[in-house]
Amino acid sequence: MKINTTFLKHIAKLSRIKLSKKELEKFTPQMKTILESVDVLQEVDTTGIKPMKKRLPFSQLREDIAKESLTQEKVLTNANHTEMGLVKVYGKIFDGIEKS
């Protein structure tokens, strides 16, 4: 993976962030350093080592019981704009990455 301004522009677009030319020039080397650090970690030989992640038997999963949710009023507390119980967001959202 080549870390250059084109790459960073793409990442910014995916994250819906607009970066100025100046910012791109500033962040590109920073991003490079971060990813190079990760590359160092990648060099460690982890063959045969199981992921250090908690394991859970299937039987201990949450049973499918529905419980009460928040009230609509509470759900909308943090929304800047609302309309008829719905969250309202401004902006053009079709361009860029497709939705699942």
Partner: peptide
């Protein structure tokens, strides 16, 4: 299912008041 994939909110949302089957 009765509840959502990763929380206990009820799933049957068809024709329900918006934003009433929601949790953190």
């Amino acid at each position: 299912t009765n509840s959502k994939m990763f929380c206990t909110c009820p799933t049957g949302y068809f024709q329900k008041e918006p934003n009433t089957h929601v949790c953190p």
